[in-house]
């Protein structure tokens, strides 16, 4: 059973749509940032190590 009669009702969230949706938007932003930071960290580590190891073999 849906709690809303229409899509407009859902977006309005009673009278406080701006508060509910901005919360969910910011949460999405923070979680996406955290995930991106984690993936980036992994890539950066691998790049650094690869460079380091190939330098070792060449010298």
């Amino acid at each position: 059973m849906m709690a809303f009669d229409s899509l407009a009702d859902f977006i309005q969230m009673g009278t406080h749509g701006a508060f509910v949706w901005s919360t969910y938007g910011l949460v999405l932003l923070i979680l996406a940032g955290l995930i991106a930071n984690t993936i980036q960290g992994r890539r950066k580590t691998l790049r650094q190590l690869k460079k380091r190891y190939s330098r070792e073999t060449h010298s």
Binding site: M1, M2, A3, F4, F10, M13, G14, T15, H16, G17, F19, V20, Y24
Partner: peptide, 14 residues
């Protein structure tokens, strides 16, 4: 929680 949970009788949808 956003779509199916019932409306709160005090706080509404907030």
């Amino acid at each position: 929680g956003l779509v199916f949970a019932p409306t709160d009788y005090q706080q509404g949808e907030t």
